[in-house]
Design a protein around this nucleic acid. Structure first.
Length: 299
DNA sequence: GCGTCCAGGTCTACC
DNA sequence: GGTAGACCTGGACGC
């Protein structure tokens, strides 16, 4: 079964898919040869749905792999998930206008970069972001893969979804340390998922929140295990680009590009982008990853 | 194969 | 408010 989507002006599928490392983390799966992004989603009470997204003649095509037909609510779920993950409803026109006013950023709107791939839920993005902290990218991949394989729901072909908060909340810290390899992050993952199950925190509301970015940042920071780096990047996935979310890779990459900078600290980086207002986090990320679009995506 | 060292963000205790 | 040390894992390195 196939579904088709129209896309906003200047939307480009592959620059969105490859916008950052999320596309390599399950339940996403990239097929480089066919230029397709696969994913598995699961809503409580139903079975996992697996589908694959690709772009043909401009429009998006979603190929449902785990079913011959879908109920109406399942079609709606797939549609809203694809729109959300690919940021199809995010209006970047003012960002592109800002980019076009600066010569070195004109490439951004020309190729339709700037939409950052996100997971099916905010909860999933936060858990994954905690798994990126204080470790190599390889270890992040191990942790996320283990979470999906050991706690997710499998579809008929054995592909796993990301575990629901209830599934994650039900295991022990020892299990996470031993089976997921999440180490000292394990109590953070447990506390966050258990707060969701107890309805003490509702991260899914953050995407539609009317809070100013600074207050939303503090709310995200209230999650144990989420510091300035993680919160800054979670905010980007919520559509707020006021924070840079600097980690060791960003720091290294920035000073590779800007060799002339004498003071090599985060304040230098912050100062460099402060003139870009609410888009500074997006300019920062696209500056660092420009070569991906010019040469080859690293994934 | 084994032991040691290091890198990577965040938390907590302390000043 | 700033700083030091602990947290845990995997990879690099030397033996």
């Amino acid at each position: 079964m196939k579904m088709h989507f129209s896309v906003p002006p200047r939307f480009q599928f592959l620059p969105t898919v490859y916008s950052h490392g999320w596309c390599t983390l399950p339940p996403f799966r990239i097929d480089k040869e066919r230029g397709a992004l696969g994913m598995v989603i699961h809503k409580s009470g139903g079975r996992p749905l697996r589908f694959e997204i690709s772009q043909h003649n401009g429009d998006l095509c979603v190929d449902i792999l785990s079913r011959r037909s879908l109920a109406s609510w399942q079609r709606k779920l797939v549609r809203s998930t694809v729109r959300s993950c690919l940021r199809l409803d995010e209006d970047l026109s003012t960002f592109y206008e800002a980019a076009n006013r600066i010569g070195r950023y004109r490439w951004i709107s020309r190729i339709g970069a700037g939409r950052m791939l996100r997971s099916a839920t905010v909860y999933e993005d936060v858990i994954k972001m905690i798994c990126t902290t204080n470790c190599s990218w390889g270890l992040t991949q191990v942790m996320v893969r283990n979470l999906c394989e050991k706690l997710g729901m499998r579809d008929g072909d054995g592909e796993s979804s990301f575990p629901a908060p209830e599934a994650l909340a039900s295991v022990s810290e020892k299990f996470l340390r031993k089976e997921v390899r999440s180490g000292y992050r394990s109590p953070y993952l447990l506390e966050f998922s258990r707060r969701i199950v107890r309805k003490e925190i509702q991260p899914e509301l953050w995407r539609e929140s009317s809070l100013p970015a600074s207050e939303l940042f503090e709310e995200v920071r209230s999650v144990k295990g989420v510091g300035p780096y993680a919160a800054g990047n979670i905010l980007k996935l919520l559509g707020h680009y006021d924070h840079l979310g600097i980690d060791s890779w960003c720091r290294k990459r920035f000073f590779e590009i800007h060799r002339s900078q004498k003071r090599r600290n985060d304040k230098t980086i912050e100062r460099y982008y402060e003139g870009h207002g609410r888009w500074r986090g997006l300019f920062f990320w696209l500056d660092l990853t420009k070569q991906w679009y010019q040469k080859q995506f690293p994934f």
